[in-house]
Simulated assay, not measured.
Amino acid sequence: MNWDQVTRDWLSVSQQIKLKWGKFTNDDLAMISGGRESFVRLFEQRYGDDKATAEKKIDAFVAGLKLPQERGNLLSWSQHCWKNIKSFARIRPRI
């Protein structure tokens, strides 16, 4: 996963961050809101690492993330609904 995806899926990513690194509060994660530099800065404060170490740990964590399955299911569900709508549009009413 790249950082653009992290920003888009921040809610699910922030939950995973909280599971991995318990020192982050909900307020911290809301303040970060997908910003990499904010995350690195706050990581340095919470865990006492230098900037390079914090960046390495965060980048390794982000590289291991996978897109949530719910998004794929939601997309396929919406596509399914759209197909149904289009099929109803083809039906001509009986007079």
Rank of each mutant, 00 (worst) to 15 (best):
A30S: 13
Q15E: 15
K56M: 06
V6P: 00
I91D: 03
R92E: 10
K23Y: 09
I85T: 07
T7L: 09
R8W: 06
S76G: 00
Q69N: 12
D9A: 03
K83D: 09
K56D: 13
L29A: 09
N84C: 07
F43G: 00
E70R: 12
I58L: 13
F88I: 08
Y47N: 08
S87C: 05
N26F: 12
S87T: 15
D4S: 13
W3F: 14
F43E: 01
S76W: 00
R8S: 08
K51V: 13
R71S: 02
Q5Y: 03
R92W: 04
W21C: 04
R41P: 00
N73Y: 10
L19P: 00
N73H: 11
Q45P: 03
Q79G: 02
A89Q: 08
A52Q: 12
G48S: 07
N26I: 12
D50Y: 09
K66S: 13
A52W: 07
L65N: 05
Q45M: 11
G34A: 02
Y47R: 10
V40T: 09
I17L: 15
S78Q: 14
W82H: 13
C81H: 06
R94P: 07
Q16F: 04
F39D: 00
P68G: 07
L29P: 05
I32H: 01
V40E: 03
K56Q: 12
I58D: 04
R46N: 11
Q5V: 04
I32Y: 03
N84F: 03
E37C: 01
F88Y: 10
D27N: 15
K18D: 06
G64P: 05
I85V: 10
G34Q: 01
I91N: 07
F24Y: 15
T7C: 05
S87F: 07
D27L: 14
A52D: 10
G22I: 10
D27F: 15
G35Q: 14
R90D: 10
L11F: 04
Q69P: 01
V62D: 02
R90F: 06
K86V: 05
G22T: 14
V13T: 07
W82M: 14
G48R: 03
S38N: 14
V40H: 01
G64V: 08
D50M: 04
R46A: 08
I95G: 09
G34P: 01
V13Q: 02
D49P: 00
F43H: 04
S76Y: 03
Q69S: 11
R90C: 06
T7H: 08
K66T: 12
S87N: 15
A60C: 04
F24G: 01
N26M: 13
R92P: 01
L19D: 11
S87W: 10
D49V: 05
